[in-house]
Amino acid sequence: MSGRTETISVPVKKSKREKRSKFSYKANERWILGSLIPIILLIIWEIAGRVGLIEAHLLPTPSKIFEEIVEMGKEGILIDHIGITLYRVVLGFFIGTIVAVVLGAIVGYFSLFEKLMDPLIQAFRAIPSLAWVPLFILWMGIGEPSKVTLIAVGVFFPVYLNIVSGIQGVDRKLIEVGKIYKFSSVKTLRKIILPAALPSFLVGLRSGLGLGWMFVVAAEIMGASKGLGYLLILGQNTYSPEIVIASILLFALIGKITDSLLKLLETKSLSWQDSLSNQR
């Protein structure tokens, strides 16, 4: 027997704590970097307000606005306002998206319907959002239907435009494949065209949601008694800039959260693409 002893190198596995910490950093890197500039701006804003560079009755400090938000939360009214606004946006978003998908698919795929319908839809798109308000009040009153309908109108146009553009930009070779397998028009639309137009459609969803948050302000001006838009009007009427700015910041925060959810959906849905964003 030889006196030599062989050493076997066993790969050392990283501890669960190390894996968790590394994964946690990568998962939150985008949020950490994205929060740097807002935090710096808030600090500058706070300091400028405390040393008197900004008049408090025009632009309260972030700490004062945060106190107002906390106070409304303790009173139990903040959740009600956020909840009803979120309900209106979500409902209007789904209605506007469904209508946009149906019409966009028809207009994008059938040239006859594009010639018939698209000019009228483009004309309606040029109408300012506030121009719809008195008409919807006359038709549906100042209740929830008029508010949700206004938001749906705002969501409809960007989703419609993106799905039409996405469908008309589909590679013709894919259509030829469907013809080889003798797909019907409906099956070609469902199996080939809509999946190929998915990236454009998801961009339209994010644009539509952003407009939905803009339109909800106009909607809640229409005689609403609850909602973040109502808080804007309340702050204006009571000359309370902290309420106005608190409402604006809540709009920005909740809008960012909902957009991030759609961004996550977009990333998951398009993970198969060999794109620049998927390589980062």
Results as ranks from 00 to 15, higher is better:
Pro199Ser: 06
Gly169Cys: 15
Val177His: 12
Val155Lys: 05
Leu150Glu: 03
Lys187Val: 10
Gly212Thr: 04
Arg206Gly: 07
Lys191His: 04
Leu198Pro: 00
Gly208Lys: 03
Ser165Tyr: 11
Pro158His: 03
Arg206Gln: 12
Phe157Gln: 11
Thr149Cys: 04
Gln168Trp: 06
Lys187Thr: 11
Phe215Arg: 02
Val186Ser: 12
Val216Ser: 02
Gly208Val: 06
Gly204Met: 04
Ile180Trp: 13
Met214Glu: 02
Ile192Gly: 02
Pro199Tyr: 08
Phe157Glu: 10
Leu189Pro: 10
Gln168Lys: 15
Ser207Phe: 12
Phe215Trp: 07
Asp171Phe: 05
Leu205Gly: 04
Leu211Pro: 09
Leu174Gln: 12
Ser200Ile: 04
Leu205Arg: 03
Val217Met: 14
Gly212Met: 01
Gly166Ile: 07
Ala197Phe: 02
Phe157Thr: 10
Phe156Asp: 06
Phe201Trp: 01
Val203Gln: 07
Leu211Trp: 11
Arg190Leu: 14
Met214Ser: 07
Asp171Gln: 08
Ser207Asn: 08
Leu161Thr: 11
Phe156Trp: 10
Ile193Met: 11
Arg206Pro: 03
Thr188Pro: 05
Val159Met: 10
Lys179Gly: 06
Pro158Asp: 01
Ile167Leu: 13
Phe183Asn: 00
Leu161Ala: 09
Gln168Ala: 10
Ile193Arg: 02
Leu211Ser: 09
Phe201Cys: 01
Pro158Tyr: 02
Ile167Lys: 04
Tyr160Val: 01
Ala152His: 07
Phe156Ser: 05
Ser165Glu: 10
Ile167Glu: 04
Val216Phe: 04
Val186Leu: 13
Leu202Gln: 00
Thr149Leu: 12
Phe183Thr: 04
Ser184Asn: 13
Ser184Lys: 14
Ser184Phe: 11
Gly208Ala: 08
Leu174Ala: 08
